[in-house]
Write a protein that binds this DNA or RNA. Structure first.
Length: 257
DNA sequence: AGAACCGCCTGCTTGC
DNA sequence: TGCAAGCAGGCGGTTC
């Protein structure tokens, strides 16, 4: 499932491939996406990331906003043979982009290009002061809070578990019990974990692939996610899995107090 | 207002 | 072996 590092990987690959290129044609295979228009004949001027969204900016003040949700995947193909779960195709002079998405959760919208507020994105102008003021007093668990995109954009289940393990914070602790120093430590670790994953082209735990259908390498770096019953690499404790808000949380009860 | 839960979806795994 | 139930979960919407 694509989170910030996976989306960032795609954006970087798209930038190289389609910036300055014109959209020659589009084809929609899924009625859920039928509202795509004002694309054909326009040139891509930039590819940006907003949280987990991919923003393909066009020369007509519009942009294609793509959110891959759970199982969405963008694939670059020279030929125009629809992949098995293809939902949309964008054709460029040098090849095609397909959205391949078995569960059909992904969204594609063409909207007026908006100036995004990057204050929730830890890779942009993340605003710690505003975060502390608005969210550090919340009663919900720290894990649930950091996955709330109104608080922090880009962290999903896998990286939430990994970052909390890195800073030895128990995922069930109420967010309000963390000190300012804890949060500073947390965001520092978040950057390290996410940046490392970007250099590894993401985490291919189930079916993540980059634009060229290649797997990432970050799954080999995971310390707790999907490691239930295994030994903690930091302290030798046994990794546990619990449910928080219907989602699996993996952590080490010995070193994450 | 904040917190918890639901529905969207379908391929894969599990259990009888 | 076969089929149904359960699971995966980001996020917008609804409810309490």
């Amino acid at each position: 499932m694509p989170e910030l590092p996976e989306v960032e990987t795609l954006c970087r690959q798209l930038q190289i491939k389609i910036c300055g290129e014109k959209v020659l044609a589009t084809e929609i295979y899924d009625d859920k996406l039928a509202s795509i228009k004002n694309i054909k004949g326009h040139e891509v001027t930039a590819v940006e990331r907003e949280g987990k969204r991919i923003v393909i900016v066009l020369d007509n003040e519009n942009a294609i906003y793509i959110h891959l949700r759970m199982t969405g995947r963008l694939l670059w193909q020279k030929d125009s043979v629809k992949p098995k779960y293809g939902r949309i195709r964008l054709t460029f002079p040098n090849g095609n982009i397909f959205l391949d998405d078995p569960r059909r959760f992904a969204t594609v919208e063409v909207l007026k290009k908006m100036d995004n507020d990057p204050s929730k994105d830890i890779f942009k102008a993340f605003d710690l002061k505003s975060f502390l003021g608005r969210h550090a007093c919340r009663k919900t668990s720290v894990k649930t809070l950091i996955m709330d995109k109104n608080a922090v954009e880009g962290i999903g289940n896998i990286y939430a578990c990994e970052i909390l393990h890195r800073v030895s914070i128990n995922p069930e602790r109420p967010a309000a019990s963390l000190t300012k120093a804890d949060w500073i430590k947390f965001f520092k670790a978040a950057k390290v974990v996410l940046e490392k994953s970007i250099t590894k082209r993401g985490t291919s735990i189930s079916d993540w692939q980059d634009l060229y259908g290649r797997k990432g390498e970050n799954q080999h770096e995971l310390k707790v996610y999907g490691q239930e019953g295994k030994c903690c690499s930091q302290c030798g404790g046994i990794i546990r899995r619990i449910k928080q808000g219907g989602r699996s949380t993996y952590y080490c009860p010995k070193c994450q107090k």
